[in-house]
Design a protein around this nucleic acid. Structure first.
Lengths: 234, 234
DNA sequence: CGGGATCCGTTACGATACTG
DNA sequence: CAGTATCGTAACGGATCCCG
């Protein structure tokens, strides 16, 4: 007889606080959401691409997150015909780039656990590469005033990234380049070591990078930029 | 009799992914955690300070989060005698500053909901102020090479912030200043409007700021810096 | 086979009551 | 003031199933 009626929570789990951080978390604070956005920074992706990258995420959750992100205007779904749906970032969703970069720099301070799952693909590094390059390009511009251009394909453990720097703009997409000035290959481990500050870009370049084809100069410049970008305050 | 045994999840809800972003989220991705850290950027706080700021957070959750953050080395608990415990950021925990700043800038893009709870105090704005000032001070240094110094108390709706800029270092704490060069008062609403880009620092200063005592120059300089910091890329 | 939807056990969270 | 205890509900994790 002591059972009381509980008020059943009007809105499903939202901080209702007058604070921009809380408003941000109401959009991207749910479990998996930031990892999902991270993947989409590598370019449009299909449901199964995301599933293979986000090992351990249940498909119903993926569906739910995609719906929520779409309704908040961070991503948009495009029907690409023949039963293929692709999801891609809107400009609003793309504005999570620097947030994800800061989160990556924070997380790099912690050692990886012993047993962990590999992602099914390497989409995850695109944001970090992009933001590091963007940061380096910005400081190169303010330092010298000169704009540079770069169009290379970087292969990381065989997976292709189309990297373009043009007029101060940086793009890093998970795909093959169409007319690259150079094609370079490296592997994941040493690359993250540079991100964590355990290795310099020079060492990476001299020991763990192969130029598959094209200009060595452009390849060198890419790793100079990466070195600057990972070291810079962000 | 078809009941099968389920493997009961070895570690309690951790992404076990080889990715710095996932490692970061394993530390700060739980609900309330980033808001809690946000508050601690305003300086050491007691349990009840945090409780009053984080309206709607259950006390048991607060306890649990504090324990987890302590065990991850992001905060430390200090016994201040007579049943008073204070919690404060470690350097590792303080490294969330730029992450929180980016999150605040992201969240500012969304309009606040109609009905929302006010925090019991204004600790929440300290990080944003600090990071905006730090960004402005950094670009002022790289622009002019000159170091400046500033020591003012800013009162926001009566709540005091001790703001110091010294040799390129910025500190913003939720407390009274000891020997301020100026004491300035303003209110919360117009201040966040500057943060969101809906108002300039000049307009804020001319219409919504009162100099309670001390140097007008220092006060003006503070709002110049804020204006720069909120506009800068971060 | 890609692209999900459904179901159900477990875990985390929210609300409130209570204690040193 | 600084938490602990308890309990109902919502969210998540894992597997299976369905549909074009």
């Amino acid at each position: 007889m002591t059972t009381e009626k509980k008020t059943p929570l009007k809105t499903p789990r939202s901080y209702r606080l007058l604070c921009p951080i809380a408003r941000g978390l109401d959009r991207v604070g749910d479990r998996w959401t930031l990892l999902l956005l991270r993947d989409l920074h590598a370019g449009p992706a299909r449901f199964s691409d995301l599933q293979s990258s986000l090992q351990g995420m249940a498909p119903n959750l993926l569906t739910e997150r995609l719906r929520a992100l779409e309704s908040d205007g961070l991503i948009r779904r495009k029907d690409a015909g023949y039963n293929v749906n692709v999801y891609e970032l809107t400009p609003l969703g793309a504005s999570t780039g620097s947030l994800l970069f800061e989160l990556a720099k924070f997380g790099s301070q912690f050692p990886p656990a012993e047993e962990l799952a590999q992602s099914g693909n390497l989409r995850l590094i695109a944001v970090t590469l992009k933001m590091a390059l963007a940061s380096a390009v910005a400081s190169a511009i303010s330092g010298s005033g000169s704009l540079e251009s770069l169009a290379v394909e970087l292969r990381v453990d065989g997976e292709p990234f189309d990297i373009k720097v043009l007029e101060g703009n940086v793009s890093v997409l998970y795909k093959h380049s169409e007319e690259p000035e150079a094609v370079i290959s490296t592997s994941y481990e040493p690359l993250v070591a540079v991100g964590d500050g355990r290795m310099t870009g020079e060492e990476l370049f001299s020991k763990h990078v192969k130029i598959v084809e094209g200009s060595a100069e452009k390849a060198i410049r890419l790793f100079e930029l990466l070195n600057t970008g990972f070291g810079a305050p962000g």
